[in-house]
């Protein structure tokens, strides 16, 4: 279903004027220089095909993706670095084309989110393990239970026991 729903998008695509697929990277697009061609593939994999569902221009059959692949190869052949080539496309289509979102103010949470989750979960795990390691039967054998401590503290007018 998942991808089924996705492919319904194909219909709408026809409405807005994308034509039938040709093919991802064709032999006549490819550069003679294997090193340059490899760089072109690397760059293409990082750029999103703007008319597709979450595909890179390297994978996409859409005509616009093909145009962008050719453009990428032209820029690289003209001597641009990978970053310059990517920036050239970003200047025209925005950050939306970057499959790897840039590190900037509004993506801080995205990039540090997993680490934050890790910290939170480690804290939770630490507490859980510590709590679970308290043998309840030993508590019963202990001189005073935590509750009794609290009640005692209250009775004696002390500050509440830190929890």
């Amino acid at each position: 279903m998942i991808r089924a729903i996705l492919s319904f998008a194909g219909l709408a695509l026809l409405m807005l004027g994308a034509s039938v697929p040709a093919a991802a990277v064709t032999p006549d697009e490819m550069l003679k220089d294997p090193a340059l061609e490899a760089r072109a593939r690397d760059v293409s994999r990082l750029l999103r095909c703007v008319v597709c569902q979450n595909q890179s221009i390297d994978d996409s059959n859409a005509p616009l993706a093909q145009d962008l692949r050719i453009l990428v190869r032209e820029r690289l052949t003209a001597g641009d670095t990978n970053d310059q080539t990517i920036n050239f496309i970003v200047a025209r289509y925005g950050n939306f084309v970057l499959l790897k979102p840039p590190m900037q103010l509004n993506t801080v949470l995205l990039w540090f989110g997993p680490a934050l989750l890790f910290a939170l979960a480690s804290f939770g795990l630490h507490r859980t393990l510590k709590a679970q390691a308290q043998p309840t039967d030993k508590v019963a054998a202990a001189p005073l239970s935590a509750d009794e401590e609290k009640r005692l503290a209250k009775l004696l007018g002390d500050a509440p026991v830190k929890n």
Binding site: N95, F96, L110
Partner: peptide, 12 residues
């Protein structure tokens, strides 16, 4: 929040 369009793709 910022009216910006970004993509989060396989590299992320």
């Amino acid at each position: 929040l910022t009216r910006d369009k970004i993509s989060v793709g396989p590299p992320y």
